[in-house]
Structure formats: structure tokens, C-alpha cells
Simulated assay, not measured.
Amino acid sequence: MVDNQMFQHSQVEVDGSSVHVVEAGAPDGKPVLFLHGWPQSWRTWQQVMSLASGQARVLAIDLPGVGRSTGNATDGSKSELAAVVHQLVAALGLEDLTLVGHDAGGMVVYSYLRRFGDVERAVIMDTVIPGVDPWGEVLRNPYIWHFAFHSIPDLPERLVQGRQREYFDYFLDVLTPDPSKITSEARNAYAAAYAEESALTAGFSWYRTLTQDAAANLAASDGPPATTPLLYLRGEREGGRIADYIEGFRTAGLSDVRDGVVSGAGHFTQEENPDETWRLIAHFAGLLAPLCG
């Protein structure tokens, strides 16, 4: 049971964006900042934050343009989104930070650590990074049809507006071994977060800039190595070989990469198995005793 009274909500103004920040835990605790993916909002981290609040200062945001984050939604490129997050980190004075991102949020985390490199550690979950192997293989997968569809200008908005709950439910169901793990309350929250057409556009823009993201990440791979410790997490039933992703990170120039598998979970690991998701992150962040083995 999640105690909603433990969460504090605020708006932080950064570079034309009013970012919705949700926080729990001790203000002087080691900070962990969570970034969501599509088609979700800060709400996807609620269970993890509830578990973590006794061990850390945990924060989650609505990405620019989504939910209660208003103003400049950026162009959707992960570089611009990372810049907003970077300014937010500075505005909140977050030090010794663990930056966690799921799905598109994981792409933002990767851009952040390559562009800024001022976080102590990073966690990327259940995503492929544009321009980083196995990017090409993923794009060739016919089950990833929505990458191309969401990239079409205007059309997705026309077809999805007013049908957010039904459209999002398709992905939440097909990518989750046990769809009941994502509650009706959570599903309604996601539909509400993208209720405005501008919010739909903000989310679809994350797909419309993937080619731009891939070019930026390829250029970064030709630069200096990234030394920020990275934990890559993937649901046990997500599909794909986690070893291919780890090798891709190392080939791209990340020198400290670790991995973990969240048992029983598909794509939405933080909601399907929040306990194990937090356990793996907490051990990596030094908030629990090191894992054996």
C-alpha cells in the first residue's frame, strides 16, 4: 500500500520549463532522481519511491511537456531533455546523485552522462540507446513498429487524441507478462498526463528525434570514454540478450558497466517488480550492503 501523503509536489522553473517534481524521503538523504518513459509519467515510480523513502531522498519528475510539467517541452531530443534535467539538478542542489531512467528516460540518462558526466552513477532500464548497439537490430524488429509510427508528423496525435487510455493500454498489456501489475489507477494517471494534444506531441517528439539522438550518440562514442558507473537493468521477460546491450555500451566507450535482471518482469520493471528493482538500484548506489556473488 502506497501512502500518497509521503509525497511532496513542487514546480521548479528551468529554462522556460516548469518541471513538476515529486519527492519523498529525508531531505538530507543521498538523492536518487527518476526519469520516466513513454507512455508514462512520474507516477510509474510511485511504488519504488515508497520502498526507497526510508533509505534515500527520492525524486521523480514529469518530463517537459507531460503531466504537470508545462512550458517549453524542448524539441524532444535527448540532448535537450538532458540539459533541462541538468539545470534541475543544479537548481535542487543534488550532490552524490544517482540518475535513473526507464525507456525514453533511459535515453535521456545516457545523453546526460555523455554530455555532462557530473552524476556519481547512472541507471538505465529496459531500453536501447540510439546509435549504440544493438540499435540497428532493434530497429529491424517488426514488433517495434511504433518507433516509425510515432515519428510521423501529426498523424499519431490525430488518431490517439481522445483515445489515450485505449492506445496506452495496448502497450501496457502486450509488454507486461501480468498486465494486472499496472493498475487501473496508474493507467488513468498516464492517460491524464497526456490528455492535452501538446502532451501527446511532447511524447511523440521523443521518437521523432531518434535519428538526431543516434547521430549525437555516435559522435560521443568517438570522443573520450565515459567513466560514470552505469547499471543496466532489464526485465527477465523483456526479450533480447542483455549481453548485447552491455557489449554495446562498452564498445561505445563506457568504461564501468554493470547489469542486472529483474525477475518475472517484462518492460515496465518498476511496476511489475518494484521490490527487486529498488533492491538492485539501492545496492548499486551504496544504499544497501553489496550483493554477494
Rank of each mutant, 00 (worst) to 15 (best):
I129Q: 01
E120C: 04
D15K: 05
G131W: 05
K30Y: 09
R237C: 15
D244C: 07
G101I: 12
T227N: 13
T227R: 13
Q40M: 11
G266W: 06
G240L: 07
Y167D: 13
Q11F: 14
R250L: 01
D96K: 14
G105A: 01
L288N: 04
A202T: 05
F268S: 01
G223A: 14
M1C: 03
R163S: 05
K78E: 09
Q8G: 13
A252G: 10
P179M: 10
R279Q: 15
R165G: 07
P153H: 05
Q5P: 03
M1S: 09
A192N: 12
G101C: 09
V119D: 02
V2R: 13
E157A: 12
A52I: 00
V261P: 00
L113M: 14
T251G: 10
G65H: 11
E185R: 14
S41W: 03
V174W: 14
W42H: 09
V14R: 09
W45T: 12
G293A: 15
R163C: 02
A191N: 11
V132D: 04
D75F: 05
T183K: 13
F34P: 03
V128M: 14
F147M: 14
P64V: 00
D133L: 12
V22N: 01
S17Y: 07
G105R: 01
L99A: 06
V257Y: 01
A186S: 04
A289F: 04
R43I: 12
V66W: 00
Q212T: 15
A214C: 12
E271T: 02
E137G: 04
L92V: 05
L280A: 02
G29C: 01
Q164H: 07
G248F: 03
L92F: 07
R115F: 03
A215L: 11
V119A: 04
Y232P: 02
Y167E: 13
L51T: 10
I124L: 06
S184C: 10
W38A: 04
D118P: 08
S18N: 09
E276M: 11
G67P: 10
T176H: 15
D178E: 15
F284I: 05
A52M: 00
R43Y: 15
Y110V: 02
V2C: 09
W38G: 04
V262F: 12
M1E: 05
T127C: 09
